[in-house]
Design a protein around this nucleic acid. Sequence first.
DNA 1: TGCATACTTGCACTATAGCGCTAGTAATAG
DNA 2: CTATTACTAGCGCTATAGTGCAAGTATGCA
Lengths: 133, 133
Amino acid sequence: MQIITIQPEVIFQALADETRLRIIRLLVVTGEESCLCEFVDSLLEPSYKLSRHLKILRQAGLLSSQKEGRWVYHRLVVKPPYLELLYSTVSALPDSGGAYSADLQRFRKRLCLRKGGRCQIGIQSEEFKTKAG
Amino acid sequence: MQIITIQPEVIFQALADETRLRIIRLLVVTGEESCLCEFVDSLLEPSYKLSRHLKILRQAGLLSSQKEGRWVYHRLVVKPPYLELLYSTVSALPDSGGAYSADLQRFRKRLCLRKGGRCQIGIQSEEFKTKAG
DNA sequence: TGCATACTTGCACTATAGCGCTAGTAATAG
DNA sequence: CTATTACTAGCGCTATAGTGCAAGTATGCA
């Protein structure tokens, strides 16, 4: 990991998207780390879409990702102090329409399906899988 | 002022631009309110550009603007708690390259030219005025 | 009344962001 | 070895954001 020049606007750019904000909020509120298929089942968005947003968050320095077998786990980066402040801001945001709490509800339910603290079952919401050939 | 539905990503969108972040940082660090021509002389950007960015910040709910004669003063909105947290985040951001402190230095210098606590002199850096007609 | 000026805005252009689709890669299960 | 599947990436499309230029509005001064 090399940090050459930090451009602060990239951090805000990373959160300037509804889907990415939904991802970050789940991680901020629960303190969890999670894999793609758990996000798919929680946010009910196609996997290729979430995969790309996760990449953007990683490149912005907000997420670190670690591969475990077939799964890739994503967790929040908390090292520079301004990131902690940023997450405090995120968790203080209003939830107009209850969209975030719906995500959270699905996320918690999905976490119950883990075995040994890890996802073992893949995407459950069939219509959001990547329909491979 | 009517708030119908707050979309949190609009707030981050507002800060996802270098120029707008420079504006907000000046106001966060100094606690001042300021008019367009003072921003022009501090950021050394053309007035039409800054005027548009100020409008975006206003529409995002980060700035409130008040006309006083020929001048329009812009100040930070601090009411919802998450905005205070947001400004804490902004003030904790690194200043790679010293661009922000250069802005700040010009801004403080420019504030010294006020009379009676108000800007009375207009844009000083000639090349950044709007060349009308 | 006319001019200077602080500020805003319409227009055209360019760059980029987000998307769906689809194919591809890698790892595991049987 | 083969099939399944978690995840990624390329392609083309569309929408939008940021910009410079130039015109327009509004306020105050002489």
